[in-house]
Measured scan of single mutants.
Amino acid sequence: SKICLVCGDEASGCHYGVVTCGSCKVFFKRAVEGQHNYLCAGRNDCIIDKIRRKNCPACRLQKCLQAGMNLGARKS
């Protein structure tokens, strides 16, 4: 099975251009559409994995963007 390129959980498919799990898919959509201005309490290098993905939305969003997630991406 495929793994989420953001948190490493089991992926549910290709979302916004990137193979991700459902949790990261929903997080990314809400983060971008809600125009959240997340700030990292650390050094913008928090570990984002299945267990810690909820700890720092700033670093999670950064990881989504680095993976290439794009709200305008067509479903493939």
Rank of each mutant, 00 (worst) to 15 (best):
F27D: 01
V18R: 08
I47H: 12
G22S: 09
H36W: 04
L39C: 14
F28G: 01
H15V: 06
S1Y: 13
N44S: 12
H36G: 12
D45A: 08
C7W: 01
C7T: 00
K63G: 06
H36S: 14
R43H: 11
K54W: 04
I48K: 07
G72M: 10
A41D: 15
E33Q: 10
C4A: 00
I3G: 04
G72P: 14
R52F: 05
T20E: 02
K75W: 13
N70D: 14
C24Q: 00
K63I: 06
C24P: 00
I51S: 13
D49E: 10
F28I: 03
R52I: 15
Q35I: 12
Y38H: 09
K75S: 15
K29F: 04
S1M: 09
G17Y: 05
H15A: 09
C64H: 01
P57I: 04
V6C: 03
R52G: 11
D45P: 05
I48L: 08
P57G: 09
M69I: 02
G22F: 03
C14R: 09
V18D: 04
S23K: 13
Q35H: 12
L39V: 13
I51F: 08
D45H: 05
S76A: 07
G42Y: 09
K75F: 04
N37A: 11
A58E: 05
G68C: 03
K75Q: 15
C46I: 01
G8S: 09
K75I: 03
G13H: 12
K2R: 07
R74T: 15
N55G: 11
I48W: 08
A41M: 15
N44G: 13
C7V: 00
C64V: 02
C21E: 00
I51E: 10
R30H: 15
F28R: 00
D45Y: 04
S23P: 14
C59F: 01
I47R: 14
C14D: 12
G13N: 15
G13M: 11
D9F: 04
K2W: 03
G13C: 02
V26I: 14
K54V: 08
V6L: 02
G8A: 15
F28Q: 02
G68D: 04
G34P: 03
C64L: 02
S76Y: 08
G68E: 05
T20G: 08
R74W: 13
E33W: 06
Q62I: 06
G42F: 10
L5W: 06
C59G: 00
G8E: 08
E10D: 12
P57V: 05
E10C: 03
I51G: 12
E33I: 05
C24M: 00
Y38N: 07
F28S: 02
H15F: 14
V6A: 10
K25F: 06
D49N: 09
L39H: 13
D45R: 11
L5Q: 15
S76R: 06
A41H: 11
S1H: 13
A11T: 09
R43S: 13
G68F: 01
C24I: 00
R74V: 14
I51M: 14
S76N: 08
P57Q: 07
L65Q: 14
G68V: 02
C4T: 01
N44E: 10
K75G: 11
G34S: 08
I3H: 06
A67L: 13
Q35G: 11
K29W: 07
I47A: 11
